[in-house]
Design a protein around this nucleic acid. Structure first.
Lengths: 390, 390
DNA sequence: TTGTAAGCGTTATCAG
DNA sequence: CTGATAACGCTTACAA
């Protein structure tokens, strides 16, 4: 079967497809009981409150509060009385909503991704970033709230409790989200976004790194180079890169990487991929390597997944990488050895992006004014680039 | 370079590695200003409250509240007055913490995954599930809070505001989390978990589906079959499957799938993979296909990623799939054509798992008692299974 | 070390 | 249609 022609879903699941095909849901077992038995008693059996616990323990609400939060001196015996009372009442700790209202902190950090979650999480860099972010927010006792960039009136982004927000995915469309968040007075950290006033920037050297990669190819002797870009516009359109790309580009990262390449190769052929995936890379590779004008001696892909697809396309066309065509990636994912040698690529500190964002948030919430963060990528020369055939 | 021998990280980023190698963080630009200028004025410049808006508009708090929530009749002119006042004050809508305290709902649904996020999100099935879940919770106006299964005292799982929780990843270790959540009185939905009292189950027919897959191989004539399992225990150990596996198994899904296979092939060779990845599958494949006792004629992998790794191992050993060895997967991911034909596998409705969980939560929060959900997988016969060589 | 009192910002209920 | 009043459950000065 031919490679990569089957679309981009990593889930393998267009849900409708399965609902039809599998017959899907059957409701058979019934091992769930809410405590509705209690709930339907004359006593409403509401969750017990701290007040109730205090009463049973024979202490004041404030003392009981201290016993739980530990933010004040409480006699050991008193604490035990409180805990005992809590246990008999089945009190599960202070109500987070009341506590957050009183304290003015929710312990929640929002993560805004564009589009659907599955698109965001398809990119290994985003996952790595999220992991780094979770690491840092975890140490400050906060959890991550997943938000999508919807413009709807009552979307969680405008109603959910949050102490701060991280913007991921670099589309200009996040403008609307920024507006809402600013209005709400929530501190914003953006990762790889076009700098905006009032938004703390965690930046990657996309342009410089791409230029360095292009220079590597130039120095190897390449003069006819093509580029496969990440989606440049919101439309996620696919096809040849047009000269007027810059006017319509909304994706900051992709645009920056392209500008970097253009600093080295002023005029260049290009193909816009609709997503960062091997399948899209394959399509782009076939297109670029079978052009009537003759094929380029090197292809710069804006992500490693795209690069892997390009390599597969080359192999399928009977071309040797790197002898017939060099391929350069971006990201530095583990390529798991897809039959090829290690990818020549620009390794970016993805986890560190998240960590930096998390640390920035911690400082922001502490009332500091942390500076913007600039991270750097490194060219890793692998086995997929070499001098062109003479 | 040989395939798959490089570990499992899809992020390509052991952070420490990069911090050292790239030099990492530089703080250069400074385009962020909090409104600390205001904040340090004599006027505290706090967020305006609904009371302030009401005062400026010359109406009562309750009327202003109605104007925003729309949950009551308000004269058009009054509403406009309120909105105007809000605009001049820069009021960004009701405070979510106060609102949730008053309403008794946070609009937040927790998602508990085991271990680190990157492990959870490496599995395409989890991402698909999450997408389906987000779909449903989105329509009910809730957002997803990412939680990890930590036993720490003040972990978000025991302090974060949540209306309900979904348990993902099937380890028995989630017991502690369940205990906490039950104590807090938060409704729990578990996906593919061992049934527990008070936990609504969204189940997959892992055992039956695996048996069906095994039967397919049996009917093709296979008698010497090996299995590559997902991690069975918390240790994520790797190596030959021991006879006493069942006693130590904590991973419900993996155990169920194995039991299903054993219903057809009572005695079977096995290899336990440390993760669901092509790299782990490759390792397992090499091990099983180079055993001194001779190689099996078919290998059952408990996930598609494992299956792809096994196939790569076979190819590298000069074996043809399916003629020399048949390979069966589980999940039904898009395999993106890794040089092989379409995988024979058990297609599971991953997105639907999340949807079902979301719907169950909606009903739970509406005070209903929804029944458990049972989903089914389907055997998809591809090009990687065939009759063994005579 | 413990208790008292005063909210945090909203919304629900009920009169007007 | 609008307004007064009373919670929601908790924390934290401050006083004892």
């Amino acid at each position: 079967m031919d490679a990569g022609a089957r679309g981009d879903s990593p889930t393998g699941a267009d849900p409708k497809e399965y609902v039809g095909r599998i017959g899907s849901i059957e409701s058979i077992r019934l091992n769930y009981q809410v405590m509705t038995d209690e709930a339907r008693n004359e006593t409403p059996a509401q969750r017990p409150t701290l007040a109730a616990v205090a009463a049973l323990a024979g202490v004041s609400r404030s003392t009981a509060s201290l016993a739980f939060s530990g933010s004040g001196p409480v006699a050991a015996t008193t604490r035990e009385k409180v805990m005992a009372a809590a246990a008999t009442l089945g009190y599960g700790g202070p109500d987070p909503m009341a506590r957050s209202l009183r304290r003015g902190r929710s312990g929640i950090v929002g993560v805004v991704v564009e589009d659907r979650l599955r698109d965001a999480f398809r990119d290994p860099m985003n996952i790595a970033m999220l992991d780094g972010l979770a690491d840092e927010t975890g140490t400050m006792g906060s959890a991550l709230l997943l938000l999508t960039d919807t413009a709807e009136e009552n979307a969680p982004i405008s109603t959910a409790p949050m102490d701060a927000v991280v913007l991921v995915g670099c589309s200009t469309r996040l403008d609307a989200s920024v507006e809402v968040l600013r209005q709400r007075g929530i501190p914003i950290v953006a990762i790889e976004a076009e700098p905006m006033a009032g938004v703390l920037d965690v930046a990657l050297d996309n342009q410089e790194a791409s230029a360095a990669g292009a220079r590597h190819l130039f120095e190897l002797g390449h003069r006819d180079v093509a580029v496969v870009t990440l989606p440049l516009g919101a439309a996620h359109a696919s096809g040849p890169l047009m000269p007027d790309w810059e006017e319509r580009a909304t994706a900051f990262t992709a645009a920056e990487r392209l500008r970097g390449v253009l600093k080295v190769f002023a005029s260049i052929r290009g193909w816009m991929a609709p997503a960062s995936s091997t399948a899209s890379g394959y399509t782009a590779g076939i297109a670029l390597l079978t052009q009537p004008e003759g094929r380029p001696t090197a292809i710069i892909a804006q992500s490693d997944l795209l690069a892997l697809g390009v390599i597969r396309a080359a192999e399928e066309l009977g071309l040797n990488v790197p002898d017939d065509v060099s391929v350069l990636g971006f990201d530095g994912i583990r390529t798991d050895g897809y039959g090829t040698g290690e990818l020549t690529t620009l390794v970016q500190p993805a986890v560190e992006k998240g960590r930096a964002a998390g640390r920035a948030i911690a400082r922001l919430l502490a009332g500091e004014e942390p500076p913007a963060v600039q991270l750097r990528s490194a060219l890793r020369i692998g086995a997929t680039t070499a001098a062109p055939r003479p």
